[in-house]
Each structure stands twice: as C-alpha cells, then as structure tokens.
Design a protein around this nucleic acid. Structure first.
Lengths: 191, 191
DNA sequence: ACCTGAACACCGTTCAAGT
DNA sequence: ACCTGAACACCGTTCAAGT
C-alpha cells in the first residue's frame, strides 16, 4: 500500500505526458514541452526514463491499467451488466470533455507503424482489456448470441472509438452523444 | 480535358505525399523523405507549394475529391442504393490492403488540433462528402426512418472508421471483415 | 521555371559537469 | 540521486545562387 502525500517526479512526468499524448500523439509528444510543464530540463527526463520510447511505453501501460480499474469500478457501481454496457461510452466522452482529447489507444492505433514495439504492445493490451470486459458484460447480460462474444465486443469498441474520432474532428461532443443514442437505438449495446 | 501522358511534378509530389500521410499522418510527413521519393531536394518542394501546410491542404483536398468520384462510381456501378451501401466499406478495406494504410481523414482527425486551418477544412469536407453520400443512399433505399438520415449516415461513417482504426492497430484485415459482417448482421447498413 | 547547397531555429538524445 | 548546459544529427523553412 503506497501513500500519495505528494506525487513523485515520475508520476508528474507520466501524468503530464499522458495529457500531451492524448492530444498530440506519440509523434507530437515534445520532450522539451513536457519537461517545461514538469519544471525541469529536457535532458533531466533521461534520468527517469532511458528514452522517449520507454517513457511512452510507461504512459501507455499505466493508461491501460487505469482503464482496467475504471471498468471494474463501472461494473461494481452499476451491479447489472446491462447497465454497465450502456454506460461504457462514458469514459470516451470524458476524454472529449477534457479539452477535446482522445483515447490514447485510438491516437496511437493511427500512429501504429511509427511506434516503438513496447508502446505497440501496451496499446494492444489496452484494446484487449476493453474487449475482454465488454465480452464479459455481454455474456453476463445474456447477450452473447450465436457469434463469439469477443467479436461483438470488438464491434462495440470500434464503433465507440470511431465516434470519438469523428466527434473530435468536428470538436462536437453533441455529435458523440447523438451517435451513442443512434447505436443504442440500433441495439449495439443490448438486443 | 487534360491529357495524362506523364504526371506533372505536382502530381507526383501529391501522390507520394498522400501515401506517406496515410501511413504517418501530417506530423509524420517528412519533407526530406518526400523529396527523396520524388527525386528532388526538400527545398525544391517550396517551388511548388509555399509551405508544408499548403502541400498537405492540397493533398487533403484532392483526397476528398477522389473520394467523391469513387463514391459516385460505386453508386453508378451497383445501380441499387442498398447494394452501394453494403459495398461502402470496400474503400476503407482497400487502404488496409495497401500496406496497412488508413483513411487520410481518420488519421488527421486524430491530429486535428495540430493541423493548419486549411487542412482542417479539407478533412471536414471529406467527412461531409461521405456522410452526404451515405445519407442519400439511405434515403434512396427507403431506410431513412424517423431519425434524420445524416445522423444514421454519421453512425455508419464512424463505425467503419473505428473498425479500420482497430484493424490497423492489430494489422489484421480479417478483423475488419469480421467487424463489417457483424455490423451488417446488426442491420447497420440496411434494416 | 525549376533546382541546389548552405543556413536558421527546433527536435530527440547524449554527456560531462555540477549539487 | 537529480539536474543543467552544451553539443550532435535531424526536422521545416528560407534564400542566394545556379541552369
């Protein structure tokens, strides 16, 4: 059990880097700008992480872990899998509310070819965590059907990701909400 | 009517730049690498375009125009709007086949905040063209329903974009196909 | 008209040097 | 242990100079 009296340098670096990467991606993660936000020089970052690749991998891994915690909390809070499914888009909406940011995983999926291997793996892990959670909720809600649940889960994940991407491109959260309503009406999260 | 005996320098630049941008985005579009592919020096690019921003805007505008032509051809080829709708994902699939590339618009939607204004507008135009075409097909097929057709069209566009993003992240075209099957079964393109 | 080579400020990264 | 300043090769961009 760790105390959190005041965040460590590494924590502050990871938090700032996550926010930058959600808005500008891996390529747009400027180490001089990041260091500025943390109050150190760019060279000092290399005392905490051996390279930008390692820093970004740490960011992506922590992002995936945090996502798992959020999903577990959503499951526990709602109690019912049907409700948890319907509220799944909330985390994606929260990124848009937060200065039109994106899911780190979606941005980096676009940048995939230019990503260091460690970051690629962390991104895969994020997607896997989300799909596994969705598949479990679908099955618990008795919505698995004939097709494999993980495929249905992937369809939900892709649709929500695409809606976030489109809403961000138009800087229009109302569009994201309208798309989610449309998907709900089409039975994407239920029937 | 223009002849196309041999492509102009500008054409060759735009074609190469489009391919690079589909794989690496605006930020990943390296002018020295682009110039190399075309067989000139980076500085020479500025004789054809006043800046990287203008070059990218030209790329995005041509991409949107080409997309309009492809959609018109799909409409004409199939004759029936229901069939045109079902075959809509083909263009997105083609990008993935082409060295795991993405729709330029999706990549740049992620990069939106870092894009020059002219590029942002061209990206919006691409999305608008796609949504308008989809809405027209939905209406022609009598699938408009109570909700506005452009919203239903946006839902299709977002879902296909998200599926492409996810399939690219896994470098797995079969996943894209499976997701499209899933969406078709759910009635996204029809019922 | 079209191209080059050299230069500018900026990036990721390294490293000697400080405390 | 943690940080800085200066340096490296690389980027977008400019521009004088060539043909």
């Amino acid at each position: 059990m760790t105390t959190n009296a005041s965040p460590t340098s590494v924590d502050r670096i990871l938090t700032a880097a996550t926010r930058i990467a959600q808005a500008h991606g891996y390529g747009g993660l400027n180490l001089r700008a990041l260091a500025d936000q943390v109050g150190i020089k760019a060279g000092s970052l290399y005392h905490h992480f051996p390279s930008k690749a390692d820093l970004a991998a740490a960011v992506a891994r922590r992002y995936a872990e945090d996502s798992a915690v959020v999903l577990a909390a959503l499951e526990a809070d709602t109690g019912r899998p049907e409700l948890a499914l319907r509220r799944y888009p909330e985390t994606f909406r929260r990124s848009l509310e937060n200065d039109n940011r994106m899911c780190l995983c979606s941005f980096m999926a676009a940048e995939y070819d230019d990503l260091p291997a460690a970051v690629q793996h962390a991104i895969q892990a994020f997607a896997d965590i989300n799909v596994a959670w969705l598949a479990r909720m679908l099955q618990a809600a008795g919505l698995a059907g004939a097709k494999p649940a993980h495929l249905r889960a992937s369809a939900i994940f892709a649709a929500v990701s695409g809606a976030q991407l489109m809403a961000r491109g138009k800087a229009d959260i109302a569009l994201f909400d309208a798309l989610m309503d449309n998907y709900r009406a089409a039975g994407l999260f239920s029937a």
